[in-house]
Design a protein around this nucleic acid. Structure first.
Lengths: 233, 233
DNA sequence: TCAAAAGTGTTTCCCCTACACCCATGG
DNA sequence: CCATGGGTGTAGGGGAAACACTTTTGA
């Protein structure tokens, strides 16, 4: 923003980047997408996916672009997390980064790792390596925010396929919150929100009673959030 | 952040700024500090105080510096709000702005307006003029955030002097939420939080019973927030 | 028929809400 | 003595939490 009173018209040689915390749930575990850096600084270390904001794209668009480059999935739940602006957070140049967090369904993604000297891989959120830059801080904040939002916003559905069972949904909550939940109370609360549609279909999963398949009602979600997926509240 | 896979090493000519929504409560009203712009673009329009981030300061420090330039108050409650990064939000150059919101006690502030061609003044939050840039959006988000936080975080105390009466506190809540609150329930809830200290002193305000003066217990607040005033949660 | 997950109600407790009167003081 | 804001308690309702058994299927 051009300010009015004080005039600092020195062109600040700051660079603006985005970093994205991509969460998914798989194998009964909360996973985060990390990239092994192929270049300095922190070459060889794991880091969050991200990159610089280009001149002709918004910061949100930059986040979407970087995410697409790694996952090639569209319609991803993406939300701005926090902006990190310490002077020395990048050892080379001054970089201000806008962190985002994204939620995707593990089944629908195929990550694009292995190219060049870099690799992309899912890591358990509960046993991540030490990350480059201040990415450990970012990751910690993302987890807090995810847990927080889980309790008052319908975000868990973003981590599941279009049709899912209530047990799957409960397991998603349990993995993220890292605590067991009461089955009856959970079902009562979720169904009481009136944001699920019973598809009428079931899924047989093994030697036991088949489970009903539910679908998330996007219309009610948009009604609740005002259609703004990108805002915090 | 320097990214790893794709290499966009074009130096992005982005500029990074901060804008600050400074709230206070006075005259039974919620006020916001606005500045009349003395230069283009939007010369003559009202805008949020702010300015560019300097090369050798963190984004948080830039916000604190700009705030100090307008108010010369230290120990201000300051929290990052959101980052706005649309391409065309500034008609001249590409500017990404990190918005903050600040809460200060009206009695302890003396705003520094009137210098140069610019003016600074308090405006009622409920009758602001149309602002420059996307500042109306920022302001709207700030109000939502303030109301939201008011209900679960001890932020109202930041708007009051060190010692205050429960009626003052209640009036603060009522002005921000724009709705009346039940006196007995309010007192029970606040005192139940165990974050107030009864100073034992009273204040006589007119022809009626004197009110007890309370003080906010900073220690408990830090305990609740982990000392991080700058983070969202 | 057995193992394994799906599905279903009731009771208890606590918090939130609604609501009206006496108290202390200055003029 | 009166006007003005300060200060106090209780009853009822609603939602959250604890808790165990029956159902349906595949092997």
């Amino acid at each position: 923003m051009t300010d009015s009173t004080s005039t600092h018209d020195a062109t600040s040689p700051l660079r603006v980047a985005v970093d994205i915390v991509v969460f998914t749930v798989a194998d009964q575990d909360l996973k985060v997408l990390l990239i092994k850096r192929g270049i300095e600084p922190y070459k060889g270390a794991w880091a969050l996916p991200g990159g610089f904001v280009l001149e002709d794209e918004s910061v949100d668009d930059a986040a979407r672009r970087e995410l697409a480059e790694e996952t090639s999935v569209e319609d991803i739940y993406l939300e701005q997390l926090y902006t990190f602006g310490e002077v020395d957070r990048d050892p080379r140049t001054r970089v201000v980064t806008v962190a985002y967090f994204a939620l995707i369904d593990a089944d629908s993604v195929e990550i694009h790792g292995g190219t060049d000297a870099s690799q992309a891989a899912w890591h358990s959120m509960y046993s991540t390596p030490t990350l480059a830059f201040d990415h450990d801080t970012i990751l910690g904040l993302a987890l807090r925010r995810l847990r927080y939002k889980l309790e008052y916003a319908p975000v868990a559905f973003q981590l599941l396929p279009d049709e899912f069972t209530l047990s799957q949904l409960q397991a998603t909550y349990e993995v993220i919150l890292a605590q067991p939940l009461d089955k009856r109370n959970f079902r009562r609360k979720i169904l009481g929100l009136d944001i699920l549609r019973d598809t009428g279909r079931t899924r047989s999963d093994g030697p036991h009673r088949p489970a009903r398949l539910f679908a998330f009602r996007q219309d009610r979600f948009e009604q609740a959030t005002g259609g703004k997926v990108i805002f915090s509240f």
